[in-house]
């Protein structure tokens, strides 16, 4: 079972992911923005970080860069609502900056658990 940090500014999204992940037997810590997420990541040892890309205070891309600076090995799963807008492909950017997998909202239980498996296998 994995200890997972989930960062998203959308409360409903956080709740949904916690439901899916805890059903699957994982432990979940959530953060409502990038700043809080980064603080938690520094304070605890997580097996995986799931982060939204479009958030207040700290954009997902910036958060990924800073996590990677601190820990080059921790698996990161990037998720995004529209994924792409205004010529900016956030998920592509996330990949480039160190995300191990990406996932577009809305996704199903299976989608998330599959992506989780991919991330943890890479790590393994």
């Amino acid at each position: 079972m994995a200890h997972i940090l989930v960062i998203d500014d959308e409360e409903l999204s956080l709740f949904t992911m916690r439901e899916i992940l805890e059903e699957a037997g994982h432990t979940v810590v959530t953060a409502g923005d990038g700043m809080a997420g980064l603080a938690l990541q520094g304070a605890q040892a997580f097996d995986l970080v799931i982060t939204d890309m479009v958030m207040p205070h700290k954009e997902g891309v910036q958060l990924i860069v800073e996590i990677r600076e601190r820990d080059s090995r921790i698996p990161i799963l990037a998720i995004s609502g529209s994924g792409r807008s205004r010529n900016t492909d956030f998920l592509e950017l996330a990949r480039q900056h160190g995300a191990n997998a990406v996932l577009t909202k809305p996704f199903s239980e299976e989608d998330l658990l599959n992506a989780l498996a991919v991330c943890l296998e890479t790590d393994g």
């Binding site: 899916i20 609502g81 909202k105």
Partner: peptide
């Protein structure tokens, strides 16, 4: 709008399926 709707559709679709 789509971005916002996708955020909202995530809990609807995922949770209703669960």
């Amino acid at each position: 709008i789509a971005h916002e709707l996708n955020n909202l559709l995530l809990p609807i679709e995922a949770l209703s399926k669960m």
